[in-house]
Amino acid sequence: MSTQSASRTPLAVLISRPWIWSWAAAALAFAATLGLTSGRGAGELAYAALSFGAFAAIVGMGQMLVITLGPGNIDLSVPATMTLAATLALRTMGTEPGTALYGLVIALAVGFCVGIANFALIFLLRLPPIIATLAASLIYQSIAIWSNRGLRIKPPEGLAEFATGRFLGVPNVAWVALVLAILVWVLLERLTWGRWLLATGQNQRAARLAGVPVEAVRAVTYVSVAIFAALAGYLLASFSGGAALNMGTEYLLMSIAVVVIGGCSVAGGDSNVPGVWGAALFMFLVVSMLNSYGTGAGVRNVLTGTIIICIVIAASTRRARQ
């Protein structure tokens, strides 16, 4: 595909990029919402979309790496990891000022341990990743319940200010997600490790025969997704004024949905960082669009589901044409 694109017009090149569709959908939802208010509140809407989209983008990029590993690879422990990391980090910080960095280290350490545990189940016990991460997530959930004790500990003031603050008019959490996105993109497109990951996802056997350390690639990927989830949990808890036991729930479906809408192949071996960002914005914007049109929760869900399926169908027919 990339060899052909050189001779095509810029527009054709743009359309051939799989990430353009999620951005177009996000722009459409944005325009449809503003159409109702005849353009008022554009800045606020964009700001909210960037804030909430950032969390979805962070967990989505982690999930993307795992899904890139190939069929059957998925991490269902994302919500539990988010909750556990946030709970333990906030408990350690105990609203003391100046402990934000300490809390971050705790959260990332939780993510690291969870990733190692998940991969141990998958590699040592040879469990299918779906079932291994599902069973393990029940345990993480229990640890979170046990350490939380129903208390809602506030984040330290400075951290809360950072999580809800802005820099150059863009929410700080969006900056974090953006930096991560660039890191992941460089990793995937420019570094050997990313090539190994894609090769593993396209054909694990061929990759192994070609000398790719397949198991090491898988291990690092499962640890990365857990660390991404932990970071998202830490930021989300600081953003929303404390960790709650159900704070991660919606991010399970969200993390998978943004990967798919973003144009990554669910069969693995193909990933797409900008698309995930576009999809994360889209998922927020579509809900706010339906909200501003005054639809009830039931109708909103039906429409969200229908839109997801329509995008998947559109993406697949586009692939078939090429």
């Binding site: 949905a257 589901g305 997801i308």
Partner: peptide, 9 residues
């Protein structure tokens, strides 16, 4: 996954 939203809605 998409249908789960539809059924739930």
């Amino acid at each position: 996954l998409g249908m789960s939203f539809v059924w739930g809605g």
